[in-house]
Design a protein around this nucleic acid. Structure first.
Length: 452
RNA sequence: GCCCCGUUCGUCUAGCGGCCUAGGACGCCGGCUUCUCAUGCCGGUAGCACGGGUUCAAAUCCCGUACGGGGUACCA
């Protein structure tokens, strides 16, 4: 039987790393099994859904290198869900209810509970009309459970399930029916999604059964990705939108590779490698149960590895959006040296800001450490003197600075570097230095000398 | 409150009863290479939440406790 999996985001917010990871595991499994990966937009909530966000989701998935074989929009299929609900009504599996949400809540509180519907309208034979919803009649006893590939056996007592709403007063069906119907209708064989959805499984299972669905799909509930406070990632408080990672200079391959190591790991401990090798050994049953912290430091490490592995031309091309006005000739000159040093593409221009703008002020600490040494004054004096009248070429500048070092028996690069670039670290100095004009360099050297 | 779930170095993981004196990766700390930084190489740091069982043998199985999380909508 062909494996059919789906990623079913609600277009109520940007795609964030949690969603991306769910999509990724589905995609991986589909590709591992030569199955079908379905993208299904679950936009049954008209209030919250924003159509333009589905385009963003598509873009983000594509950016991450995931492709899908089929795509559906639930809002195109409301009639099907409504028909299913109508059928339930006919067969007595569902009933209409005209209780207001306030009334439901009031009665719950009177019972000493904070929420929960009491079955008030079960046998009231409420007719269609304003403010009337359709509720599914849940069993009063027995248990509903399943064998989760990741978590093992999970069971819920039916008595604890309230008669939940399947069609809103507006006539628009809710998530559970749409979800159950589509999984059945689309022949979904494996449901792989976040652990935050576990408790919806019994409802979906019950609905599916009522729809005459045979074997339920295999469920695999992924551990959540959490923030530093170990809470489920939230679009509002955590900075985790996939689009933002693109803007911050993360490579999609690195991002996808890193996401893969959250909740799952290759058997042979090789964490960074071509996606095909991961797909080959990917199994749902190997996924962890425990939540994983999204560690930006480790992501950056992955990213720098991927950046350094790029062909130089490719690196230049991918850096284009981040150049921030850096002249093309300059970038051409320093690209290779920058490539070996950045963790993120958005850091690229920072390596030449001392060429493009003013020299940044050195930190007090750096200044003391470098300029506090004996002999620095003589070094600067000699370098200034010889820079005043020499060939303005990288090789010459390098020769001069090192010759001064030999003559004075000291290291000379650091003071010059700090004086001119404002930093102790950075690109190999002389090539980029030669692109600055003589006057600017001399000014910076003299001003540093004066400050000693 | 009720329901469900989780717990191996700071972090991500390997481990599915003996190979564990618990392995790898990130981070961090040292060292070597280097007249900057980065890379590379070498080394170090640090963990089975706790308590009971079961067993000749438990990080691995069972029970409990603690802590953490998810859910509890006419959201998904």
């Amino acid at each position: 039987m062909t494996v059919r999996v789906r990623f079913s985001p609600a277009p109520t917010g940007y795609l964030h790393v949690g969603g991306a990871r769910s999509a990724l595991f589905n995609w991986m499994y589909a590709r591992h099994t030569s199955g079908v990966f379905v993208l299904r937009i679950e936009d049954t909530d008209a209030e919250r859904s924003q159509p333009e966000l589905t385009e963003v989701i598509r873009e983000n998935l594509t950016w991450l290198g995931m492709d899908w074989d089929e795509e559906y929009l639930q809002s195109d299929r409301f009639d099907k869900y409504r028909a299913a609900a109508a059928d339930f009504l006919d067969r007595g599996l569902a009933y209409r209810c005209d209780c207001t949400q306030d009334a439901v809540k009031e009665r719950a509180e009177a019972r000493g509970e904070s929420s929960g519907y009491d079955g008030h309208c079960r046998d009231r034979d409420v007719q269609a009309g304003d403010g009337v919803v359709v509720r599914f009649r849940t069993p009063d006893d027995g248990v509903t459970g399943w064998d989760d590939v990741i978590r093992g056996r999970v069971e819920f007592e039916n008595a604890l399930l309230e008669d939940f709403v399947i069609v809103r007063a507006s006539g628009v069906p809710l998530f559970h029916v749409a979800n159950a119907f589509d999984d059945l209708d689309m022949g979904i064989t494996h449901v792989v999604r976040g652990e935050d959805l576990v408790n919806t499984v019994p409802r979906v299972l019950l609905l599916r059964e009522a729809m005459g669905g045979g074997e339920p799909p295999v469920f695999a509930h992924l551990p959540l990705i959490v923030n530093e406070k170990r809470q489920k990632l939230s679009k509002r408080r955590d900075d985790v939108s996939v689009g933002d990672f693109a803007d911050r200079g993360f490579l999609p391959e690195a991002m996808r590779n890193y996401l893969l190591t959250l909740g799952w790991g290759p058997k042979d401990d090789i964490e960074i490698r071509p996606i095909g090798e991961f797909i080959e050994q990917f199994e749902l049953s190997d996924i962890n149960k425990a939540p994983a912290f999204f560690d930006i430091k480790k992501l950056e490490h992955f990213n720098s590895e991927y950046i350094r592995a790029l062909e130089l031309e490719e690196f230049k091309e991918r850096s284009q959006p981040f150049l921030a006005g850096m002249p093309a000739e300059l970038f051409e000159l320093v690209a290779a040296d920058i490539q070996g040093r950045v963790k993120r593409l958005d850091e690229v221009p920072t390596f030449v800001d001392w060429i493009i703008g003013e020299a940044p002020e050195p930190s007090e600490k750096d200044w003391k450490k470098v300029m506090g040494k004996d002999g620095v004054a003589q070094v600067l004096d000699l370098v200034i003197e010889r820079f005043e009248d020499c060939d303005w070429k990288a090789e010459t500048l390098e020769e001069i600075v090192f010759a001064v070092g030999t003559e004075l028996d000291t290291k000379t690069q650091l003071p010059v570097r700090l004086a001119v670039t404002g930093s102790r670290s950075g690109l190999p100095l002389f090539e980029p230095l030669a692109t600055l004009d003589r006057q600017t360099v001399l000014e910076r050297l003299r001003s540093a000398r004066a400050r000693l």
